[in-house]
Design a protein around this nucleic acid. Structure first.
Length: 511
RNA sequence: GGUCCGUUCGUCUAGGGGUUAGGACACCAGAUUUUCAUUCUGGUAACACGGGUUCGAUUCCCGUACGGACUACCA
């Protein structure tokens, strides 16, 4: 079998979309599975849309996600350069070859001329308005102009493009690894521009030439490329590279969670979740977009989630390490239909991966938050807090968000709950409990509990009735980790002081 | 409009000519617990529609509907 060589080929026009991360992932999985190579090629042939920083962003995003590049802009390699703008001369050579063989031609039409051609055809009721075998003879190009005229135009530096001379009525077959056989008649393919007037190639030429030169074995890309795939096949044929032509796999799209359509940044913003792997500020508009990384998604969780959007192993296993994913992955098990992006599932994966971390790793997350808050904390305490909270946490920041009370006495209390449950019995019980606590020099979860039971017998009030008020007094909220453990962590003095505060302040509000 | 691609619970999906159509997320209910944002148990919920082919179709074929992508000197 031919060496597996795949490429991820984004254009540096902004932040990397999450769908791009999935495409990169599938490429990477295939490469690793067959001990092949994963390339990163930057498709920056559109100079107008170039965004500074985008290339670096893409590289950093992939690195964060754990998608390793074997050859590419960041790495170099035997087929360098891997940035298309650095390969300009190469494309010119191949375009010339097509020109010489009559498989391409010069075209001099201005934008206005193209526009009026389209309008004319539209007015005639023509079903498509393309530059093609039916229209090309009415246009200004090297097929219609005198040779001398063409020569003169070229020499005088007039703007021109090079278009592919697509034959009429030719059946083009394409065997897509995901969709099966796709047939298109060449009449449906227009005379695509191969070289633009600025001397840069278009995607179509550059991608075919580079994939051939870089010995790409599989082209795994989004479904939006399917309509132009026949054009690419034709290009391989024209160059005489059909034997070396890579296999195609067109991935189903990522759709928005509600309604229909491609997942867009707008949808993500509306629903409040990120769509880019990392934080990103558009250098032009200064618009800021949050990233999965900064929002607390673990890369392995995100990848696992993404992998399952369109692919599944056919077993009931859902949690996959990278290695397991590589072993289980096949292109055949990628589905055909678009997948809606449901952030809930991503959160669930995140939770699963977070829980699988060691207590020490979790503590590190807590320390990250504490550092920002300038709060000191011994390791032992941090670990205790994480153990107490790990079952109820989705993001690393949750340890701090939901566990602030371990460090600072609450200032906000669940008023509704107090109004409902704060009564004479609570006061009686908590007053007594406070006294019991005071009698101890130190408390741990165990003696806090036995003291609670003792107080219950003493006051003849069931502890269950006051637990929630005790929780509100200590933490401000109605729910949280084990209360006795909470008391152990915050300590006796702090517990007593918070209960006292409640006794003084809650009472006033009720009566 | 044209071309191409698609359609199994709300979502991700398994399955495949005869199945009680399976799992996961979400949701709901019950149990446990001092709370639930834990855990356990249970539940609601799907083959888009119409025609073929067939003894039998959710599965195969054809249409229709719906959805999507593409239709640039963007990728």
């Amino acid at each position: 079998m031919k060496e597996v060589r795949v490429r991820f080929a984004p254009s540096p026009t902004g932040a990397l979309h999450i769908g791009g991360v999935r495409t990169a992932l599938y490429n990477f999985l295939l490469a690793r599975k067959y001990n092949g190579k994963m390339l990163l090629r930057i498709e920056d042939t559109d100079q107008n849309r170039f965004v500074p920083g985008a290339e670096e962003y893409i590289i950093e995003s992939l690195a964060w996600a754990g998608i390793e590049i074997d050859e590419g802009v960041s790495k170099g390699g035997p087929y360098a350069p891997y940035r298309q703008s650095d390969r300009k001369g190469i494309y010119q050579k191949y375009a010339q070859q097509l020109l010489d063989e009559g498989k391409a031609y010069y075209a001099f039409d201005t934008e206005q001329e193209l526009e009026s051609m389209r309008e004319r055809l539209k007015a005639q009721g023509s079903s498509d308005q393309q530059y093609s075998s039916v229209t090309r003879m009415q246009m200004k190009n090297s097929l219609t102009l005198q040779e001398s005229e063409v020569k003169q135009k070229l020499e005088s530096g007039e703007h021109f493009v090079i278009r592919l001379n697509v034959p009429a009525n030719l059946e083009i077959k394409l065997n897509d690894l995901i969709r099966g056989e796709v047939r298109v008649n060449s009449s449906q393919v227009d005379d695509k521009v191969l070289m633009k007037s600025d001397g840069m190639p278009t995607y179509h030429l550059a991608n075919v030439v580079d994939d051939y030169l870089m010995k790409i074995s599989h082209v795994i890309r989004g479904e939006e490329w399917l309509p132009s795939a026949p054009l690419h096949v034709l290009l391989y044929r024209f160059f005489g590279w059909e034997k070396e032509m890579p296999q195609f796999a067109h991935l189903p799209l990522l759709l928005k969670a509600d309604g229909n359509g491609k997942l867009s940044k707008r949808d993500a913003d509306k629903a409040g979740f990120p769509i880019f792997p990392l934080n990103w500020t558009d250098p032009k508009t200064k618009e800021f977009s949050k990233g999965f990384r900064e929002n607390g998604y673990l890369p392995e969780a995100l990848l696992n989630f993404l992998a399952f959007l369109g692919w599944n192993p056919g077993t009931e296993q859902e949690i996959f390490s990278m290695k397991e994913m590589i072993d289980a992955f096949t292109l055949e098990r990628i589905g055909k239909a678009g997948a809606k992006f449901d952030i809930h599932k991503a959160q669930w994966f995140n939770q699963q991966y977070l829980r699988a971390k060691t207590d020490e790793q979790l503590a590190q997350y807590l320390f990250d938050s504490l550092k920002k808050e300038k709060i000191e904390c011994p390791d032992e305490k941090a670990i205790k807090i994480c153990i107490a909270m790990k079952e109820r946490v989705t993001f690393p920041r949750d340890f701090w968000e939901y566990g602030k009370f371990f460090f600072v006495a609450p200032t906000q209390f669940d008023e509704q709950l107090i109004a409902k449950k704060w009564n004479d019995d609570t006061v009686k019980f908590l007053t007594a409990y406070k006294e019991e606590l005071k009698g101890k020099s130190i408390i741990d979860a165990e003696n806090a509990k036995s003291l609670l039971e003792k107080t219950s017998i003493l006051t003849e009030i069931a502890s269950g009735k006051i637990m929630q008020m005790l929780r509100v007094a200590l933490t401000g909220g109605a729910s949280g980790p084990d209360l006795m453990m909470t008391m152990e962590i915050i300590g006796k003095d702090e517990s007593v002081s918070r209960i006292s505060y409640a006794l003084e302040n809650f009472k006033v509000k009720v009566s």
